Amino acid sequence: MQTQSAHSNSLPPSALIFDSGVGAISIAREIRQLLPGLTLHFGIDNGFYPYGSKSEAALRPRIVEQASAMMARSGADILVVGCNTASTLALPQLREALTKPVIGVVPAVKPAAAATRTHTIALIATEGTVNRNYTRDLIEQFANGNRVINVPAPELVHLAEAKLRGETVTAADLEPVLHRIFHTAGGDKVDIAVLACTHFPLLRDELNRYAPRTIQWLDSGAAIARRVQWWLGELALELPTSPAQGLLLTSAPDSDGRIAGAFAEFIPGASYVAR
């Protein structure tokens, strides 16, 4: 992959954060906190949402096609794949298709393995990520002999999006997922839960509040932000003190304005449809 940026002096440095839904917000908040001057664009493949329920054969070419088109439309210097499903499926293909740096989201198994004191970790993800060979290989390589309990939690995606719409997430909403974490074999020993979907950190406060005991909820957001910072240095891109107006690109019309509303904290303007 080329490391020279095709960055134009007339444009401020920018990154495109790609996802099928609004989970990318959790990554964007970490990036904005660390790099407040970086312009953020968002590429949302809402026409194929949710990724977690689609087949690998359908997803790989779709992800490459949509992310590539949105990178071209935005002119971003860096692509951040703000979706665990897309990252576990298509990072090699994206890096082959694009000349710009591609940063993926990897479940935080390695730091969880280093931090656990009970040697028992819960990995909370969509069903697709839980069952994917990539995830199994990640656990085998980085769990360091610790027990990893896989917890499929597809309902958290919808609950996170409901929270962003202003709806209240209750203890009853989260009880099925919490039961799968704490009331399964070995669940009494879990001291760290890896939030292996970018939607899930949006529910960190509620998960912490309603869990039967205190544990650590770990995600990759801060690490992704540091990786973006590293690439900006590699590309010799200096940030201004404040970001420019970003773009919100969608693969299908945002007819009810929910996506634009969710990203309003970053992009108060209109949504543009990427064809």
Rank of each mutant, 00 (worst) to 15 (best):
V194A: 10
A185R: 12
A153C: 14
I192Q: 07
V102L: 10
T250P: 00
R209A: 14
D256E: 13
E238F: 01
A244W: 07
P176D: 03
A171K: 15
H199K: 09
S220N: 13
L249S: 05
K189C: 01
L218S: 09
L11Y: 08
E238R: 02
L59E: 10
R204P: 02
S8G: 15
E155N: 14
H179W: 00
A76C: 09
L178S: 08
T85H: 04
P154Q: 07
R275L: 09
P61Y: 06
S55N: 06
V109L: 07
Q66D: 06
L11S: 13
P240Y: 13
H199Q: 07
L207Q: 11
T184D: 02
L38D: 08
L156N: 07
Y210D: 01
A122Y: 04
I17N: 07
I27P: 01
L232E: 10
V177E: 01
A270L: 03
P176W: 04
R213L: 07
L174Q: 04
Y272C: 12
T3I: 11
P36M: 05
G104T: 11
I267C: 14
H158W: 05
H41E: 14
A122T: 10
V157G: 10
A162F: 00
V109F: 01
V109N: 03
A262H: 11
A113Q: 08
A223D: 10
A274R: 03
A171H: 08
A97Y: 03
C197Y: 01
A97T: 07
F263H: 06
T184S: 14
G43D: 13
R226K: 15
T135C: 09
R209V: 06
V190F: 00
V130K: 03
P107N: 12
Q33I: 04
L34W: 01
F48V: 06
S220G: 05
V105G: 09
Y49G: 01
L232N: 04
E234T: 13
Q2F: 12
G269V: 04
Q245P: 01
E56I: 11
I139M: 13
G37I: 02
S10T: 15
L249N: 05
Q93I: 02
S255W: 01
T88W: 00
I17Y: 03
H158A: 15
G145L: 08
